[in-house]
Design a protein around this nucleic acid. Structure first.
Lengths: 219, 219
DNA sequence: ATTACTAGTAGACGAGTAA
DNA sequence: TTTACTCGTCTACTAGTAA
């Protein structure tokens, strides 16, 4: 809806209209936006109507400046692009799907972990994990995940056996929500376990050896 | 014209479609863009037609990823906003030192360029350039440098070979005066050539792979 | 020169629906 | 459930033109 307005607003801002009135005719604006003088004139009236610009309609040339609301709208747009290009709040880890040794499954199905998962990840993991062999180039990223951040899932004892603390990060694979689970104390290892509400292999149609990218959220 | 496409592209990118296929139904996309499932479906077909996205139409869910062209379009949009919100009197571009292919050296040593450099930069460049691979996050800045501003160093002909116009910006690395040199007509490229009165590598003790920050003046 | 009205048109959209 | 076709409506645009 407001989509229509941002092109014109941006052009005005580029000419300095964020800080000052700038002189611009409807024909000029139309040319810059690839539309007719008439349409540009109409667009300007619409922007005025929406309270996105101030206008000072002189005898010869009109002068235009963005209102706070107009500047705000542009800033919002800008922040969308920042999210795309400057995401420092996540890491992408590449790897390939492998068949695990059932260890992950054994761990994840423990009620002592499950309850905490459900509470902290806001979903109860499917009974099983997706095992991803992390590509050599991204093992350093995995290491820094192990070292800190994320959420700590407390360990427990059961039947005389100790289950240690585990670190979990919210993550997505192909836009499907999941979580990466890493034992806090772990030797060098290039396998990453991913839990999900659904059966990931089936949901995404992943087969052994297929490459995957896991987007791990750091927040 | 392409205005219509950026909304959908941006949404896909926000969900991670710049780096990987993401699973998204036409209904989901429609909801996110405030349009019907039918329109979103049509939009996706248009994006495909324009070569802006790749699609993998599975039985259950389609998976979508931006093409290079699509990513390029978004990057251009982003750089417009950067001009509005970020550009002041200088830009800092981060990258790493790499070994060039000797092309820069060949160009810079041409008298046709050297004389103009000396006149406009107030120093005569050392016979060679420092090659910097610009970090992905700063490529948009590089693009907008290429697009305009700075000083234009006129091209010339010599022995039947054409040397095109070149754009130059005064800059500093670790407080040492230098200049960034960019061919005016250039394809997508993440390598930046830096000229200096001195041998920059030796003077600053820079080795391959080392990170550098180039502070480019826009005035 | 401007801005901006009116009228006519092209195309963007959603509803219904097939596959 | 999906995707995506057809078709009718409505809106965004341009041309012509007034002020």
């Amino acid at each position: 809806m407001s989509d229509k307005f941002v092109g014109a607003l941006r052009q005005i801002a580029l000419m300095g209209g964020m800080h000052d009135y700038i002189a611009i005719s409807s024909r000029e604006l139309g040319d810059l936006l690839g539309m007719s003088q008439q349409s540009a004139s109409k667009r300007i009236l619409e922007l005025l109507d929406e309270g996105l610009i101030h206008r000072d309609l002189g005898a010869r040339r009109q002068r235009i400046r963005l209102t706070d609301k107009g500047a705000e709208l542009l800033r919002k747009e800008y922040s969308e692009y920042q999210k795309i290009f400057e995401m420092r709040d996540h890491v992408v880890i590449k790897g390939t799907v492998i068949t695990g040794m059932g260890e992950g499954q054994y761990y994840v199905t423990q009620a002592g972990y499950q309850d905490q998962f459900e509470q902290k990840l806001s979903f109860r993991p499917y009974d099983g994990t997706l095992n991803v062999r992390v590509s050599p180039a991204d093992i350093t990223k995995l290491d820094s995940l192990r070292r800190g951040g994320g959420m700590v899932v407390k360990g427990f004892e059961k039947n005389g056996r100790t289950f240690g603390d585990v670190r979990a990060y919210k993550a997505t694979i192909q836009n499907v929500d999941c979580a990466v689970v890493l034992p806090s104390r772990s030797h060098y290892n290039d396998v990453m376990e991913v839990v999900c509400k659904y059966h990931l292999r089936r949901t995404l149609g992943l087969r052994d050896g297929e490459p995957v990218e896991v987007r791990v959220s750091l927040t």
